[in-house]
Design a protein around this nucleic acid. Sequence first.
RNA 1: GCGAAAGUGGCGGAAUUGGCAGACGCGCUGGCCUUAGGAGCCAGUGGGCUAACGCCCGUGGGGGUUCGAGUCCCCCCUUUCGCACCA
Length: 925
Amino acid sequence: MSSYPHQEIEGKWRARWDADGLYRAKVDWQRPKHYALTMLPYPSGDLHIGHWYAMVPSDARARYMRMRGYNVMFPMGFDAFGLPAENAAIQRGIHPWKWTYANIENMRRQLHSMGAMFDWEREAISCTPQFYRWTEWLFKKFYDNGLAYRAEALVNWSESLQTVLANEQVIDGTDERTGQPVVQKLMSQWFLRILNYADELLDFGQLDWPESVVKAQTNWIGRSAGARVTFRTEQDEPIEIFTTRPDTLWGATFMVLAPEHPLVAEVTTSEQRPIIDAYVLEAAQATEIERSSESRVKTGVFTGGYALNPVNDERVPIWIADYVMLTYGTGAIMAVPAHDQRDFEFARQFGIEIRPVIRPATGELDGTTMAEAYLGPGVMTNSGAIDNVPCNEAKGLNNPSIAATIDWLKKHNTGDEAVTYRLRDWLISRQRYWGAPIPVVKTGTGDYESVPEHELPVLLPEDVEFMPTGQSPLQNHPGFLTTQDAEGKPAERETDTMDTFVCSSWYQYRYLSPDYEDGPFDPQEAAYWLPVDMYTGGAEHATLHLLYTRFFTKAMRDLGMFDRTAEVMRSHERNPEALFDEPMLRLCNQGQVLGEEHPGDTIAAYGEWNGNVLRASRVRVLEEADGNGSGDVIGEILRRTENILTVRQLDGSRATVEVAADAELDIPRVEGARNVNQLRHHLEVERMSKSKGNVVNPDEWVVRFGSDSLRAYLMFGFDWRKGGPWDSSRIQGVVRWINDIWEIATQGPPSGSGTPEAEVQLERRLHQTIERVQAGLENFTFNTAIAALMAFRNDLRAALREARIGAPAWESALSTMVRLMAPLTPHIAEELWERLGHEYSVHQQSWPRFDATKAAEDNVSLVVLVNGKVRDHVEVSAGIGEDEAKHLGLATEGAQRYLEGGIEPRRVIFIAARKGQEPKVNIVL
RNA sequence: GCGAAAGUGGCGGAAUUGGCAGACGCGCUGGCCUUAGGAGCCAGUGGGCUAACGCCCGUGGGGGUUCGAGUCCCCCCUUUCGCACCA
């Protein structure tokens, strides 16, 4: 029994593939193209099992597409700007360049061991000047065309880190790394006008994307249709409000401004000023957590000022409250407590009038007795011009009452139909060193102008000093700061750099031609390869990267960046229409591999009790053979914090054990000197992280079982879209499979001649396998593809044992099976292909053709059901007709048991055999 | 609160359009074999009743549609994720 010698074989073939450039993807207009893309990794230093999990199936599918006859490009690169490199520089004095490049080198090596068909000649690294030159160039084009601008905005400021944080780095109002609170601070920042594209981004018509991502983006964009209405203060200043329910304007009994609203100071009376100032200050100082943790209790203060409601010239009091956000709509609302729940609660709390303006079918509402706001349909009442107009539950102009109100507002020039979005323009500036510089200078007059194209890229200076405060060293670098404007006058360079999501918004285009110097990408390449056909990656990017990159593509299209590409397409008779609207046509999200669950050590601890704590002078880790043992505390370690153990004792109670510094430790699995850190505690299923100690290192598994086994396990052991906890024991199944295939395929064909029956049967199984493997690769259900191959392994073994298969039939079956395995387990497939006497390379072979007639069974078993329950089976020929099937079914013993005594079935239903299913008769009594 | 996805043996997971629930694998049980291993081979393995033929129950819970429901409809529970005072 020889097992698959992966050490000898896998490295050998990877070297050959590299030497031959087997995976170079070259433009070939004679062949159909397929651009397969998997999200590029951040070079954190170590390739994680999660990278394997994400990339291996993408690779398998790219390989499958290649065997289907497509010219496939499958590139790889690194998203190499970002905070960790800078933190390493601050903490350990390593320059971000060095740290990043060392990590990339290591990860390239690790990626290589995966045996994926990456085209390394197309590798793109976002922190190289040849890449970020074009990131800057794109920014410049956006800026010159009004898609980038600078403005003051409330941003996330971390006092402890002394820096602005990206929205995605803020979780529940705290910094995701340190858990320190983040406050909102007004700062001048750079934005991209993603809002210009809000409506187009809501159109997913061209995309085959998961419904969940479409929904998440739709919600994130958060389009609401309604009206803008202008109220006036008593000082005759306009106050614009946005509402989705303009029809309830006649029911407005107060207004609320966001505390930060610019008109607050103006409308506040001197009497109210002290408490208003206090409230504004409090709101400004509150962190996100505080503001949202104040449950749902409404707070607010009356300004003393009034505004005039344009529909009825009524005076309505103006309040401020922090439930109104400056960043949404206009930062001011009209409050209609009768028909809005938040306004209702506020009015009840502060004793403000509640005035119903919708009369439900059930009768007039009474504002003094209502228990909650009324949101349903009815007829408008107390509403002047729109009295008696029906109001339904439709949104926007589809609702007659809203349409009537908007007409009225337009006629009286005091409001109009309007749309607002939850989405904000994209804040891309970061006060950090390790990012693409924003290519802008500030002139002597304080204006900003973009750096001329021929001066790009603005290079990151290498001679910089990193501050422990985290302040960007660019701010203290005279050589970088000092420059000239377009007229040659002294100017100051912008020190902010771009969010790394800007780099990843267009990297799929840089892959086309990573060294191209005349633009972000070579139109000759783009014309052939674009757009991306199949994109895979994590669902956590649903509202970030996946939205940003759609925006980028649309903006690039509108700035004419694909015009030349379209010309090239036309010259090759490819119609460019609609090909630049979306970056990636099809998307599939994988799940996440979580850490492995394992129990903590069971220990017996001996020592002295000090209150509730056992001071242990001796701790022994029990092995199964020890039985329960004896000790002052016996049980499983649930937690360990330094030398304090939490132990679940045999009776279920918890005990605390403090391990003395000089305690005697007995840990059988550890040789030599023992240390309290070696005691294992119970590990729950959680995301992998270094601090939890549950990280799975793919390299170890490659060394142990080989790359193909690890690839196969990652594809077989999980529902790819779902993910789940790593489980080391389950890898045995695929290791056995690989070894079995090795043994079966290398031991030579069975001796003797075959019988036609056995050979036909084997061929039938083979074609059933082709169909199932193919379906698995098409649909990203890799687990079923490998299950089919394992089942075929079982068939081969049974055939070897029982049946007579001649050498030609045997070898033909194996050759086909090896081609089916090639996308999934490329190394062993290549080796076996050679050993079966075929020419290099299996990866250049075409995919086996499925033949339905060969897969069909001649004889099938007719399933006999009585009242829908299986009662018998009978062998019949595959093409059995309805009458014969009913006849045979009724005659079976299983059916007759229910028909004794001359019972007549009420109905007999024949269910013809469908693909992969047996025919059935259901006898209804 | 809103939105999305999910809930199937001891475990990971299959089940195409409503048509034999549990493919394939892990684990477990029994047997065999051996140069004793982190092996290998053969058989069995949803639960219950039965000497057996068989029968009953079974896809989170409860109703419904249907000859037939893991799958469709209604209500409820649980879990995970996203958004969260969105006017």
